[in-house]
Amino acid sequence: MTAPEPGPGPTPVAARALGPDLARGAMLLCIALANSHYFLRGPAVLGGYPRGGSELDAAVVWLLTTFVDGRAFPLFGLLFGYGVARIADRQAHRGPRRVRRLLWRRALGLIGVGFLHAVLLYVGDILAAYGVLLLVGAWLVRWPDRRLLVLAGLFFALGALPGGDSMTIDADPPGVEMLPPDLMTMLVRRPPVSVFVAVLGPIGFLCPFALGLWAGRRRILERPERHRVLLRAVAVGGLGVAVAGAQPIALVLAGLVDVPGRDVLELIGPLHDATGVPGGCGYAALVSLVALRFADRRGPLVEAIAATGQRSMTCYLAQSPVWTVTFAPFLLDLSGTLTVAGTALLAASTWLVTVVLADAMRRRGTPGPFEVLLRRITYGFVSRS
């Protein structure tokens, strides 16, 4: 079933396609799993995972490294670009200059919320990086397809270059920015780190963002019935590449093979990161095909996860208080106590709570508060859709 054509302004719920919302809602589970384990401490840490855990921990590490780490964030980058393309198309009647200004207002809203989020709750925030990306991306919406795809290819190749800046091979335990000993240290140390992450983060998101702009122009995720062959090929090929490309580092992090030398880590770490881009595209394609199957007969679970996706910014921000309370040294300080498996269970439980809360808001017809805020900044009014 094709979603009805939207009119000017933010897209009302009745006009939203199931695929993108379902993808955002489901992948917030992966975001929770990917973010939470980087708080863990131990005698030896590699790739955000303490070494020497139980067999269950090793299995969880393999699963997360293969299917989650470096795979969910490219998906959100793609969905972000897809959403920007749809906003630009819906607002095309305003003219290019006014569309850019609208997107810049949205970018400033993301930067403001993201910076506060990074300083007060989670220093690894991605919202501010998305905002910085959109300051540039507002110009990209008018680029021709070929130029967008060339840009995506260039930044994909850049991300695949051997080097030691991959989170996958980070051998250090979490620093004081993630685990500040007290509130004052947190407020002093986090702002410059947050600015650094926001400024450099867009480099890693530019490839999936450009691909999302390209896909958004064609409404591929909203009209999967017209693109079944492409979506099936991307789902199988993209996820296959992501799984295969993850294995060299996944086997190391899970403790199934010995840790190689730094020169080898600097090859397999970027390989893991780079193959996450086709993995993110594969996830988007897979969820769109699932959405096509359930478009005319949504059950309670599909509705709840889609409601989470419709409130993805609010639900993403709602995860961070859990990490702060659980891991901050001046609060529960469980970074050295929880195992990888225990932290994964905490992350899944946190996501499940946000799904329940989002579904409750859907039943009441209430949008997410941060979605309302961003819409007001972007469009100048509050929409209850």
Rank of each mutant, 00 (worst) to 15 (best):
D258G: 11
P369Q: 15
G261E: 02
R311I: 07
G269F: 02
D263Q: 14
V322D: 03
I268V: 14
A358G: 04
L271S: 07
Y283V: 15
R297A: 03
G261R: 07
T308L: 12
S320F: 02
V382Q: 15
M361D: 06
R362A: 09
T378V: 10
V353C: 01
I377D: 05
G380W: 07
L332W: 10
L317A: 02
R362I: 13
G342D: 04
P369E: 11
G282K: 11
D258F: 06
Q319F: 01
V264R: 12
G282I: 06
G336I: 00
A347G: 03
C281A: 14
T337F: 00
A348S: 01
A344N: 11
T308R: 07
A328R: 12
V287C: 11
A285D: 06
Q319A: 04
V340K: 02
D359N: 11
D296E: 09
P260H: 04
L289I: 15
A306G: 08
V340Y: 01
T343S: 03
T339L: 14
R262P: 13
F330G: 09
F294R: 15
V340F: 01
D296R: 15
G276Y: 04
T354W: 02
P300W: 07
T343W: 05
G280S: 01
A291C: 14
W323S: 11
A306W: 07
P270S: 02
T366W: 06
Q310N: 07
A318K: 08
I377C: 02
V264A: 05
I377L: 14
L352T: 10
A348I: 03
V290W: 03
L289C: 13
G368D: 00
A306S: 12
T275K: 06
V355H: 02
L332E: 08
P260M: 06
